[in-house]
Write a protein that binds this DNA or RNA. Structure first.
Length: 334
DNA sequence: CCGCTGATTGTTCCG
DNA sequence: CGGAACAATCAGCGG
């Protein structure tokens, strides 16, 4: 990658030019083989300068290829580390929740510091860990033990920002051909939105409003998603439980619709039932008049299951609450 | 104009 | 078990 920039090579010496020297070089970069006053070309008539150049370039290409392979390996390794650390985080937060520890306040400052400079923050016990006085880390689920800390050292991620971007870009990547190509019926019931998505649907407009008040401009959707994720992560477990319950309700809805869909794959019937999905509920509450009808239809169509209707109510009520009490919600956001 | 991308977390499914 | 896909959202961008 970066080695491509340094392809100006002195053929005779094999050394790379620095940029100052290369200014004296010929325009084609072949100055090393150009006949000069001092070079006695007659001494080495058999050596083809182009072949020399070719071999040097070939060597350079191999080096670049090697570097790329190393980077790819490193990428896989870092991805594994990230997964393990996520597992560890889940484990630790669960433990802290079990102990009733108020760790959320301490966590709030961390993402900001990380987001500003992508500086690696060693965990509190990192020094103890390095000194070998903390063997407890081995008991973490998925812990890599002694290998974890060195691999997360800042020196191993020379381009912190780019590393993150690369991971995310490669992480998402393809939803092109594999599963979706099999049979993606547009009339099939939508998958249930998970707890975080439920949370997003509820809080999206609030965060948008808050941002607009603060910055006098519309929030970008990526920034919006980041903020939602941040506030989701700072949510207490009982607050999250609300949304997990909503997910369970929506899952019941999904399973019910799937049963109907598999037994009677009638496009018109299923499409109306699908409107009970969480995403529709959010759209609904934006438009006052239509919302009444939509909500009504949702509850009616759900028939025996009151669950969908129940899951609707908190959303609407919270949103109304947000409109009347914006200040408190702003506090919640921050 | 249509379709893809990205930013996020959590769940499910497949190899 | 790991990783991909997929749920919502929509501005921005490319073809």
């Amino acid at each position: 990658m970066a080695a491509v920039e340094d392809l100006e090579v002195d053929v005779q010496s094999g050394h790379e030019y620095d940029h100052e020297n290369s200014q004296h070089a010929g325009q084609n970069g072949f100055s090393g083989v150009q006949p000069s006053a001092n070079s006695s070309t007659g001494d080495q008539p058999a050596v083809d300068p182009y072949k020399q150049r070719h071999s040097v370039l070939k060597r350079k290409c191999e080096e670049v290829q090697l570097t790329n392979e190393r980077l790819v390996n490193r990428l896989h390794h870092v991805k594994r580390i990230i997964r393990r650390l996520k597992r560890e985080r889940r484990f630790l937060t669960k433990k802290l929740d079990d102990h009733g520890d108020d760790y959320k306040a301490a966590l709030l400052s961390l993402p900001e510091e990380v987001s500003v400079g992508y500086q690696y923050q060693p965990p509190p016990n990192y020094q103890l860990f390095q000194q070998g006085t903390m063997g407890d880390l081995q008991s973490y689920p998925g812990s890599m033990g002694p290998h974890m800390a060195p691999s997360m050292a800042p020196g191993l991620l020379p381009f912190p920002g780019s590393a993150t971007i690369t991971l995310q870009a490669s992480g998402k990547k393809k939803h092109k051909q594999t599963k979706s190509e099999k049979e993606k019926d547009p009339n099939a019931p939508k998958k249930p939105a998970n707890a975080f998505f439920m949370f997003c649907q509820q809080r999206r407009s609030q965060v948008q409003e808050t941002y607009y008040k603060e910055h006098k401009e519309e929030i970008g959707h990526h920034e919006l998603t980041k903020r939602l994720a941040k506030s989701w992560n700072s949510l207490s477990s009982e607050d999250k439980k609300r949304y997990y319950d909503m997910y369970e309700k929506d899952k019941e809805r999904y399973e019910r619709e799937m049963r109907e869909y598999t037994s009677n794959p009638n496009p018109s019937a299923t499409s109306t039932v699908t409107s009970a999905h969480g995403g529709e509920e959010v759209k609904v509450k934006k438009e006052d008049v239509d919302s009444g009808e939509s909500l009504h239809i949702d509850v009616e169509s759900s028939g025996d299951s009151v669950s969908v209707g129940q899951s609707c109510e908190p959303i609407v009520s919270t949103n109304q609450f947000s409109l009347t009490m914006p200040s408190q919600l702003t506090e919640e956001d921050t």
